[in-house]
Write a protein that binds this DNA or RNA. Sequence first.
DNA 1: ATACCTGTTTCCCG
DNA 2: CCGGGAAACAGGTA
Length: 264
Amino acid sequence: MPELAEVAYACSLWNKGLKKSIKQVEIKERARVFRDTDVRKFVEFLEGTTLLKSATHGKQMLFSFSNKIWIGIHLGMTGSLSIQEANYESKKHDVLIIRQTKQVLVFTDPRQFGRIRIHQGSQEPPWWSELPIGMLDDSFQVDFLINTILRHPRKPIKALLLDQRYFLGMGNWMADEVLWRSKLYPGQRSGKLSEQQIRILFEKILFVVNGAMGSVGKHGGDPPKGWLFHVRWKDGGICPKTGTILKREKIGGRTTCWSPSLQI
DNA sequence: ATACCTGTTTCCCG
DNA sequence: CCGGGAAACAGGTA
């Protein structure tokens, strides 16, 4: 379930392993999650190091270890991190198992749309440091949104929100949530939005981002009551604002849920 | 058995 | 160049 806040929560699950050394590492070498990685020295690089720091940026995670080792993880569609007891035995879809004395850090991904990278060097890896600004950064301001829209005036606003060059961590349900709160039809061409609509959109992006980080990002689970999130998954859902029936259709290549009576 | 899926990438088309 | 649409990735679930 990995969008911005779920990724932040998943990352925090491994915090129990901070400052602790790595006793043993197991990987599923032939798993597709290693497609960008030279897997030969992966285990050798990691064993004996200490987990020093974790961070997320959008849907990306970065873990830094001693000996100048860095690992990047993207959860894809079905990836998840967990923390397990020391006697944990590997399960079918586990792709990375990091054993410490008192606990085990596990990355599992049945569909293998996720991704693991490893890097050795005193600087952060380029695939991390070259990421664009995130929605939680100070420099994410309404002007950034205005400029992004100016660059893609013909793109439906839903598709634009899902573009990871601009809205790092925005996923399908967050985009629907933002547009619902902004009273915008997801298929609306971005360039058609008025300045006032863009300002509201920006405000709602921050609301959803902060709301999700404060709930899902901190404790896992679901966003607060009253969010579209709770009714957007199946046909027949009712709009929490208007009480009318929600529509579900593919927009920008993804199943989109919106309230026709509310979103123009 | 069939359809669907909180993500990304690639390819083809207009 | 831009954007849509479909397919691919690979498995779980309804």
